[in-house]
């Protein structure tokens, strides 16, 4: 089938401002939108620029705005979006070239919540024990692939880019509710600051954007509750 695809393009070495380019591509309904982009790059315009790697929704490279929604280009099929496709770079991060945005601000926020296990007790000579229930407590937030689809769908983040954003809170949740971790109070204090969880207005865009189907707003709610109660159980 013929697919018409409009792409928001910008070359910092040539263009003063972004513009729309339109392409027509032969595609199968089961093709990924990423396949369509790869086909354009290979056979129509080699300068079209985007990130991609694993092409099956795990590496998190190719989050884009596709027909108005934040999605991974490798996880949305032509048959899901139809014959008219519109692709734009993620919102809220500086565009570098075409669909490539500067991810540094996003990873800075990730690093700010101390994304590593904090536990200074000497470990046993085997594994630390953890119950199945304790492990299940933070299972969902371990699925995050740091694709930035959630953070860049959040109106609170668009309005104020100093907001730490949903992805960083998800990553904090993964440690706060891990009973092997002892850094919960430090992270909760960080997230209680003015650019922390209270900027979340429960708009739920992040939940809809997450390609890993993490219930992000619920996770943020649990962090808010832990800040209020001081209790992570």
């Amino acid at each position: 089938m013929k697919v018409k695809i409009k792409i928001r393009r910008f070359n910092p070495e040539k263009d003063r401002k972004p513009y729309w380019a339109e392409y027509t591509v032969d595609a199968e309904p089961a093709d990924r939108v990423l396949d369509v982009l790869v086909q354009i790059k290979g056979y129509q315009d080699g300068s079209l620029t985007f990130r991609r790697s694993c092409a099956h929704g795990i590496c998190g490279s190719d989050a884009l705005v596709i027909n108005g929604r934040n999605r991974l280009a490798c996880k949305v099929l032509v048959r899901d979006v139809g014959k008219d496709i519109v692709v734009e770079p993620l919102r809220g991060l500086p565009v570098i070239k075409d669909l490539t945005v500067d991810m540094e601000p996003f990873f800075r926020k990730y690093r700010s919540i101390l994304p590593f296990l904090i536990n200074d007790e000497p470990p046993p000579h085997i594994e630390r024990l953890q119950t199945i229930e304790a492990r299940a407590r933070f299972d969902e937030t371990t699925k995050c692939i740091l694709c930035a689809a959630c953070t860049t769908s959040c109106p609170s983040f668009w309005a104020n880019d100093s907001y730490v954003g949903p992805a960083a809170i998800v990553q904090a949740h993964r440690f706060i509710f891990d009973d092997r971790d002892q850094g919960a109070q430090v992270r909760l204090a960080l997230l209680a600051e003015s650019d922390g969880v209270w900027r979340c207005r429960t708009i739920y865009n992040c939940v809809e954007a997450c390609p890993r189907e993490i219930d992000i707003t619920r996770a943020i709610g649990e962090v808010k509750k832990a800040i209020l109660t001081g209790d992570v159980d």
């Binding site: 594994e127 630390r128 953890q130 199945i132 492990r135 371990t142 891990d178 971790d181």
Partner: peptide, 15 residues
Amino acid sequence: EHMGLPFDRTPDGRI
């Protein structure tokens, strides 16, 4: 595991 990897667990809490 000591680094924090969330392995699935057996009923007695081991990996």
